[in-house]
Every structure is written in C-alpha cells, then in structure tokens.
Design a protein around this nucleic acid. Structure first.
Lengths: 200, 200
DNA sequence: GATAAAATGTAGTGATCGCTATATAAATAC
DNA sequence: GTATTTATATAGCGATCACTACATTTTATC
C-alpha cells in the first residue's frame, strides 16, 4: 500500500509520498473549501514544485478527485459504517445521523463533510461536478437501503436524511458542537422512526 | 424611496441607481456565491467603473453587506413572514419550513438562501463574518420565539429548525425541487410538533 | 464667473490564479 | 557507456483578483 509504487519502473523516483500528499490536500480542501486552497499553497504544504504536482495529479481538480475518493473510502463514509454494524433499517439510519454528529464538529480546523460542502460555491464546474456526483451516489445508496423495507416512501425518506446531513454539515462548519448536533440527530432519528410507524 | 437620493447635495449626480445596483449584486452573489462573483463582473453588470463602485460601496464586502441586508429585509425573511400570519408556535415554525420549500428551489439561476450559503467557503473573512452574523441573528429570533412557549427546550428545537433550513438551502442549491423540499418540510414540521407533544 | 464638492473615465497597481516550457537530474534497459 | 524514461528545478506564461492614482466632468454654493 504505502510501498514504493515506482519499484521496477524506469525513470527517476518520486521525492514525495503520493498518498501523504492526497491526505494533506484532503485536509486542506476540507478545512477551507476547494477554491480557497491554491495550487501554490498545496505545493508548499506538499513540498513539491508545480511540475511535480501536475505530473502526479494532472490538475488541481484531479487532486481534488483523489482527495474526495480517499475521504469517501475512509471513516467519513458514515452510512457504510452504520450499515456494517447491522440492525434494523431505522436503527442504521439513526446510527448514521449520530455518527455524523460525532464526525462533523470542528477538529483541527476541519468541520462538516468534504463531499457535501467541500466544493460548495466553487467557480470550477469540474470540482462542483465531482462533489455533486459523489454526494448523489451517497444519497442513492441510502435510498436503495431504505427501499428494501419501504419501497414506496424511499425517495422522501432518503431526502429527509440527506437534508438532515447537509444541514448538520453546514451547522458544524458554522461552529455547532457535538452535543448540539447529537441532540438534533436524535430528534431526526425519532422523526424517521415515526414516519415509518405512520401508515407503514 | 427610488427618488433621487442626491437632491440638495453639492457635487455631480450619480449616473446609476444604487438600489438597482444592490439588487443586481444580490442576485449575482445569490446565484454563484460571494467569491465567485468578481468586482469586474459586478461593475460590468451594474454599468459602472471601479471608482464609482468604490465611491458608492467602499469595498466588495461593503456591497455584499448591502445585498445581505436587502435580502433579509425582503420576502426572503421567511420566519418574519410566517410569524406575521399568526397562529400557534408550531404552526408558525411549520409555515416557515414550508415557505423555505417554496422559496429555495432554483429560479433564474438562484437557489437556496443567500444568508445561509452565499459566503460558504469564502476566503474573505469579512464576508464570512457578515453572513454568519446575520445567520445567527435569524436563528436567535427563532429561538426566542420558541422560548415563549418552550423555554426549556428552545435551544434544541431552534437548532433542529436551523439545521433543517440549512439542509433545505443546500439541497435546493444541489438541484432539489419544490415538491421534494415540501415533502421534507412537512416531515420536519411533524417532527417539530411531535417533539413538542412529547413531555411538553 | 469663481470656488468647492462629488462622481466619473482612463489607466493601471501589485498580487495571485492555475498551469507550462525548458533544461537538468536520476533511474533502468541495452 | 549509451539511450531511454521519469521526475525534478528554474522561471515564467496569460489571466484575473480587489483596488487606486489622477485628471476630468458635472453639480451646487458664493
């Protein structure tokens, strides 16, 4: 994984660790948003010069895509984590919201969800499209999961969950802490269960 | 109102209508976010050159502040509108959410709430602070209103409403339409009522 | 008409944006 | 060693950023 990805290849070896670079970029994009982080700053933080940057990632948006994928493949995929713990449908959804309340509050200058808010208001249509695609994929997974038990109301229920998560991410980026987010997550979880109970 | 605000003053008269300029800037900031709209574009849309721009508004952030205040003083202040129609507390809150579902969907390239999302991810701390201050004032007004009937749980209930509105604004900016937003607004309204009913 | 005040047009400031042309350094293949 | 390949460093590309210095035009006051 972290091994030399260049072993056996021909030319000069990379002087920096690509995975570390993606990790650093992920943190910067998450903290301040796509547009607010420049290539110059990324290069400085990563310790590389522009040619190495573009040889490795193709473009700023290319690095953003790597960062998004790394983010979604890790602990930030709270729905996958909630699903992995098993339990009933409503239980998984409520666990997802509670995980969001634990993950989203500010830590080391980073708050909210990178996928949901990392490219918001970006002037770069490529970055916006990348984030939007991943966001929709996440909501789609939640909708499909809900549909296994509630095929009729899956869309509406998934929209409710998605809006709650987008709101929690925005609120966390606005400074809301874990306690307050957890209280709201519990309210939303109760609301979800009650919607299921009504004419289920 | 739209009269010559310069009558009686000494120097040359303005060649443009300041109110119209603020209106245009409001629309642009709302459509694409604070950072993505440049002073050059604003000047072109407003039909004025940089010196006139800075003489009238002081800075880009100064114009943003005017735009925010104009926005919050008009039909976008959905809580004030919901309150004006009277009714019980839960009724007013639910009406606020339903008004958001009607106001937030995309129209002419504009979606969501300017105060909640207009400066999100902005690199300018002044613009961010302006939007944050107005957002907090709005949530505070909702909290105080809830506290008249539910002083103990006003904070939590207001947080729930705020997160729902932030989520609806974000969802609208991501393309969600009025029908889907209304369904979620109704769900959230029911959730609010049920939270009130539980050990009220 | 002379003076003062306010707004305008012309032209440009330094800084930063994402990105690249070119040459050099470091590795393997033969 | 020679050729080939890859990554590097130096330097700078044109474009855009928010903003301004300066001279001119338009108004009211005196």
């Amino acid at each position: 994984m972290t091994a030399t990805e260049n072993s056996g290849a021909r030319g000069r070896r990379r002087s920096f660790d690509v995975d570390e670079a993606v990790e650093t970029a992920m943190r910067l994009f998450h903290a301040r948003g796509y547009d607010a982080v420049g290539v110059a700053e990324l290069g400085a933080e990563l310790g590389i010069k522009p040619p190495s940057f573009y040889a490795a990632f193709g473009s700023k948006a290319g690095l953003f895509e790597r960062a998004l994928k790394r983010y979604a493949a890790g602990e930030a995929n709270i729905f996958a984590r909630a699903q992995a713990e098993g339990g009933g449908m409503a239980e998984v959804i409520e666990r997802t919201l509670l995980l969001a309340a634990r993950l989203y509050p500010e830590r080391d200058g980073v708050a909210g969800c990178l996928v949901l808010d990392g490219a918001r208001n970006s002037a770069d249509p490529e970055a916006s499209a990348l984030a939007r695609t991943m966001s929709k994929a996440g909501v789609s997974a939640i909708r499909d999961f809900i549909a296994t038990e509630q095929p009729e109301r899956a869309d509406a229920l998934a929209d409710f969950v998605a809006i709650t998560m987008k709101g929690m991410s925005a609120a966390a980026r606005d400074g809301m802490g874990e306690e307050a987010l957890t209280v709201v997550a519990r309210m939303a979880g109760r609301a979800f269960r009650r919607e299921l109970a009504a004419e289920g």
